[in-house]
């Protein structure tokens, strides 16, 4: 697969540990004849503080790749390092690989924020409670401190006046902004976005993208699966195009989006642009 992988962004100094380093990642769903080989050896390097946008037709494996970066899917082969730490496994002194205890995996996940296509806000909690929940339950923050911080984060995403609304009382765009605030409440070092605007009405897409753009400007490392080419062009440092479980082409947005060399990418762009 290394033949299809372009050299990683020049901006990374050789000494810095990349935020994400995925090597030869395979993911197979199911067993035997019905097995589905979704990822077929993906390499991905995301430098600290950079924004990577993953593009690709549906079924290309881009969402699965994102879920592998957060352990929501267990990879079949390969390795994923986040901030230099191997996800999900450890090597003992003799070099034998061990699966990590679920508690350790939960701790790893708590440093990685994730935003879902369908928001998945906790329906029985208000916006403020949604944001304050994990810091209390995972970090052991006091309720009062967590609520103060949650209020700050809701203000940051422009929803201070919606703190006491339940998700069902918010528009899709507002729900997604609460979901972003909820992920930020854990002070993640990496944020993953899984098609964050795909479930939104067109007029609500902008408000979510604005929040994401602000976040990128603040220096957050982000991996974004999206169909918003405009966002990729303006915000991304690095664009990755996937098809059929492999990375077909990647590079800076100017090169990838304006002068695609791969026919599959040319065809994809002609459909979405």
């Amino acid at each position: 697969m290394s033949a299809t992988t372009a050299p990683t962004s020049d901006a990374t100094p050789a000494t810095e540990v990349p935020m994400v380093e995925a090597r030869g990642v395979h993911k197979v769903f199911g067993h035997g004849a019905g097995a589905l080989h979704v990822l077929r050896g993906v390499d991905l390097v995301v430098p600290q503080g950079s924004v990577t946008v993953v593009l690709g037709p549906s079924g290309s494996g881009k969402s699965t790749l994102l879920r592998c970066l957060n352990e929501l899917e267990e990879i079949t082969a390969g390795s994923v390092h986040v901030d230099g730490e191997l996800l999900g496994y450890r090597h003992d002194a003799k070099g034998v690989l061990h699966r990590l205890h679920p508690r350790r995996i939960a701790a790893q996940r708590s440093r990685i924020g994730m935003v879902f296509q369908r928001f998945h806000l906790f329906g029985h909690m208000t916006a403020l409670e949604n944001v304050a929940e994990a810091p209390v339950q995972v970090r052991g923050l006091s309720k009062a401190a967590a609520r103060r911080r949650a209020a700050e984060l809701l203000e940051r995403v422009g929803l201070a006046d919606r703190a006491d609304h339940y998700p069902a009382q918010l528009s899709g765009g507002q729900q997604q902004r609460v979901a972003i605030a909820r992920a930020l409440a854990m002070d993640p070092e990496l944020m993953l976005f899984d098609e964050p605007t795909s479930a939104l009405d067109p007029e609500l897409v902008g408000e979510v993208l604005t929040v994401m753009q602000d976040l990128a400007r603040s220096g957050m490392t982000m991996v974004v699966v999206t169909h918003e080419i405009g966002f990729a062009r303006e915000v991304a440092d690095h664009v990755v195009f996937m098809d059929d479980g492999v990375v077909v082409e990647q590079g800076p947005p100017g090169a990838v989006l304006e002068n695609p060399s791969e026919p599959r990418l040319q065809e994809f762009l002609s459909h979405v642009l």
């Binding site: 996940r109 990685i112 879902f116 339950q137 992920a183």
Partner: peptide, 18 residues
Amino acid sequence: VDPGQAEAARALGMKESR
């Protein structure tokens, strides 16, 4: 309950019992 609820909580680092 939508499995997405548990998944979102898992992504936040919550333990299964919680």
